[in-house]
Every structure is written in structure tokens, then in C-alpha cells.
Nucleic acid binder design. Structure first.
Lengths: 262, 262
DNA sequence: TATAAAGGTGAATCCGCAC
DNA sequence: AGTGCGGATTCACCTTTAT
């Protein structure tokens, strides 16, 4: 398997080509199946640019469940016994995903809450502001107890206090957000690097292999490189791959290893 | 249906006696009952000896799923079209519960994160400190849009800013925690009143009927009374009912309605 | 150049009634 | 079920323009 490259293809097909027990960490940001219908307007009558990408559309729960069962089953197969997987989602999909992961035998280590510092408000006043997404961190199963977790490092990273399962991180905006030639966001759901940094830093060692089956514009690859880990990406859309390669080429090491050594 | 009383009996059996469309709000804190050694039962009520193999694992999920499907189906039936339901859980069970609720047709309005200000640390350093529980707030279905939500009131309650789906609340300790005659906590999972207060305040009007099918030591009843709502409790254990009745008798109004009127 | 004001925007299941 | 229209509804942060 070639490292530090992006595979252009269908996630499930490509995952099937991987060897058993070959990956140290999987970070997956699958489609959420948001089921948006009408256009949403802000109080000032401007439109909200919602997620209306084709890749987020599924006809039913059962179709979504089948899709997730297939890619998650392959993920479990190719994960090393010492490896672990992170899957991010919102309330639209995380209960489907979590249920499937349990059924497949994954063992939940934490449900980490990404507490957004600057979420979009609920303009109509019909609900509470939806201020979180959820990350499920799982080992291969209950009996796989030797997963990598850099406890001391994360404690140090967190000002010498044990890090909790609530992470306060802002949305990916400004300079960090990859723009297309039209100046608009290139990907509708790009994640902040700080989020992925905590994932990789906590659950891998230097040189480990990180796989992202929904690579998008390459946040996982960029952060892996900056943290001296190796990555493999799988992505269906060619435009995203082009942007991701460019982005990763220009990524540099975040900081010296000594700063974060255990 | 007699109001402001506790029904002594089995949750599913008792729920079946309720009329359709008769309840304004349901707050449910079901047993987590997951993956705990030596307490698993097969459908025929025989004990499962070990839980190490996949067969037993599947058996336990399936048992729990059946139980939750049964009581949640009844909850949906007896909820008014303008009503809503809140279910609290941890990562051990909330993905089973959420998946079942979606399958039954419930419509998720928010996944509220109870961010504990004083969680128990992970002493072994094997995971992040588990600092949250999740509350699923759902209407009867996608097409039921007239659920009660006191938006302005909650905004006022939150210092004139829209309340978000993250609630920072401490564990139920000290004076508030109900003690048995031995001075030990009477119930192992008593919830803080502030949590239930936000639930009832946001999703009911004065005089509305609040049902708690897992009443325990009566937090829901105490808070409902303090907020001038009516309650019905269902509880299997007689000791809890005794404690709950005593507690509710000595509960008084929190504050004047005018303070929180919309 | 500095500060202030104005404008843009984010994984969003976001109205209710009359016809 | 679909359409049309009156009316109520927002927070943090970043960028651009104006003073």
C-alpha cells in the first residue's frame, strides 16, 4: 500500500483492497444524510448555503445503514489490534452510525463532544442552537485493550489537566478554509485542523499510518504530515483530490516533537 | 388518569393503560443496562452465564432493544401531537435508544449535551474523562411541527442570548442528593434538578401533564410541582416511591411565574 | 495608520395560515 | 399536497469598506 497518497475511487471498493490488520488509525467523516428540504434564510433575508451536495443524499435510513455497515465492516477488518477508529457525525446520522458500530463489535471508548465556539444560531427560534457534533472513538472490540492512547501527552497538551471528552473548538473559517477559484468554500463540510490534531495526537505514535476513507480536501493528510504521521486518503471527487494534494504539499511541521514527547 | 401521583408497576404494562394523545411531555431516564457482566437475560428469562462471546453480546443488545422499542412505542402513542419527549442516556445506551426512536418515527429536535462541571476523572488514564451525558429531544414525527418550545423564555433564562444545546450543570450532590436511612445515596443515578428544570421549562406550559416512566426518587415530580406543572410517575421499586412522595410533599414553588413569562 | 462600521457566513433536518 | 404571502427570527467571528 502506497503511503502519503490519495486513492481516487469509491470508498467501499477501495477499502476492500486493504490487507487485514494493517492500519493504526482511521478518521472518518462520512456523509451525514442531513435531509434538508427548504431554503433557510437569515433574519436579514440572506440565504444560508446549506449542504445540498449529491454525496449527502440517501433515499432512506435503510440505504444509509447499508452504506455505513459496508464501509465500517471493512474498517474494522483492516484496523490493527492496537488501532482505533474515530467517526464524526451530527444528530442526523450519529445514532445510525453508533448503533451499527456496536452491532459490528466495535467498543466505544469515548463519545467526544465537539463543542463549537461559534455555531450558527437557530434563526427561527424553534429549537436550541445546535452547537455540537459528536466523535465516536472506538477500539476493535471489548477484548482489544492495547489501543494507543497518549494520556500523558494529552494531559500536557491540556495545561496539565486530564483532557475531557468535551472539546471547545471553533468552526473552520477564515484563512484555514479552502476556497475555490470563485472565492467560495471549496468543500461544504471542511473540519478544523485542531479537531483532527487532537485525534491524531492522542491515538497514534510518530510514523503510524492514518487512513481517511472520506478524505475531502485533505485535513487529515495535512495534519498527519504536520505531526509526522503517514496517511492514506480515499476520495471520490477529483476536484477535492487536486485541492488536497496542493494543500498537503504546502503543509509543514507544526512543532518539535520534544515539545510533546511523553 | 390521576394526576400528581406515582403508579407502582412495570413501565411497559402501565404505559399501555394510558389513552392516546394524552400527555404533553415525557421525560425518561431509562436503565443503561449495557454489557454488564452476570446480569444478562435471554428472552425466556434464563440467565446468560458469560458475556465473552459474540452470541451473548448480540443477545444482550437485542434484549435491550426490545425493551426500549416497547416502552418508546407506547410513549409515542400517548404523546399529544403538540407534545415532545426527552430521553437521557450515556454512550452505553444512547445510540441504541436514538436508533430505535428514529425507527419508530420520532423526529430529533436537538441532541442536548449535559456537560458535567465535575465529572469523575478517568483514573487509569486509558481514555478521556467522560464528561457528558446526552439528552435526545424529539417530537412525534417530522410532520408534527407544533410542539411546545418556549423560545423567548429560554433566551431570557440564558441571559438574553439564545440557549444552545450544551448545558453546563454539575452532578447531583450535597443537599440535593436524596439519602437513605444509612446516609448513603438512595438512588445511583439521581439527576440534578437544574437539568429537569430546563427540560420542563422549555417544553411545557403551566398546568401541562409531564410523565416520567422511570420515576426513581422523583426529580421530575419535584421539579414539575415547583414549576406548576402536573406529573405522573411510574416506578417499579417501592422504596423509591416512598422517598419520592416524601420529597415532592416538601417541594415548594421555585419562583413567581411573572419572572419567566414570555 | 488606526479605528469603526458594515457586510458576510457557518453540516440547519428552522413558520403558519389561507387558498 | 402544493403555492403564496404576512410576519417573526440571530451569534460569533472574520473580512471589507469607511471614517
Amino acid at each position: 500500500m502506497t503511503l502519503n497518497t490519495i486513492i481516487h475511487g469509491d470508498c467501499i471498493n477501495e477499502l476492500k483492497k486493504f490487507h487485514d490488520n494493517s492500519i493504526d488509525l482511521i478518521f472518518a467523516d462520512p456523509p451525514y444524510n442531513m435531509q434538508l428540504e427548504n431554503t433557510l434564510y437569515r433574519p436579514d433575508n440572506t440565504k444560508v448555503a446549506g449542504v445540498d451536495d449529491d454525496w449527502d443524499k440517501f433515499d432512506s435510513f435503510s440505504e444509509y445503514d447499508n452504506f455505513c455497515t459496508a464501509w465500517l465492516r471493512e474498517c474494522r477488518r483492516i484496523l490493527k489490534d492496537t488501532g482505533s477508529i474515530w467517526v464524526i457525525g451530527s444528530y442526523h446520522n450519529i445514532f445510525r452510525v453508533g448503533n451499527i458500530m456496536l452491532d459490528l463489535g466495535f467498543w466505544i471508548l469515548n463519545d467526544v463532544t465537539w463543542h463549537k465556539t461559534n455555531p450558527m444560531p437557530n434563526f427561527m427560534g424553534t429549537r436550541f442552537t445546535n452547537a455540537t457534533e459528536t466523535l465516536l472513538w472506538c477500539s476493535k472490540g471489548k477484548e482489544y485493550k492495547k489501543y494507543t492512547f497518549n494520556h500523558k501527552l494529552m494531559k500536557k497538551y491540556n495545561g496539565n489537566k486530564q483532557m475531557t471528552s468535551v472539546w471547545r473548538i471553533g468552526l473552520c473559517v477564515g484563512e484555514e478554509r479552502i476556497k475555490g477559484e470563485d472565492g467560495k468554500k471549496a468543500h461544504s463540510t471542511q473540519k478544523p485542523e485542531e479537531l483532527v490534531k487532537r485525534v491524531i495526537l492522542s491515538a497514534t505514535k510518530q510514523g503510524d499510518i492514518v487512513l481517511d476513507p472520506f478524505f475531502g480536501t485533505g485535513t487529515t493528510g495535512a495534519v498527519a504530515k504536520k505531526l509526522k504521521r503517514q496517511f492514506i486518503g480515499i476520495e471520490k471527487e477529483e476536484e477535492y483530490i487536486t485541492l488536497a494534494n496542493k494543500r498537503i504539499d504546502s503543509s509543514n511541521i507544526y512543532f518539535e516533537e520534544a515539545d510533546w514527547a511523553e
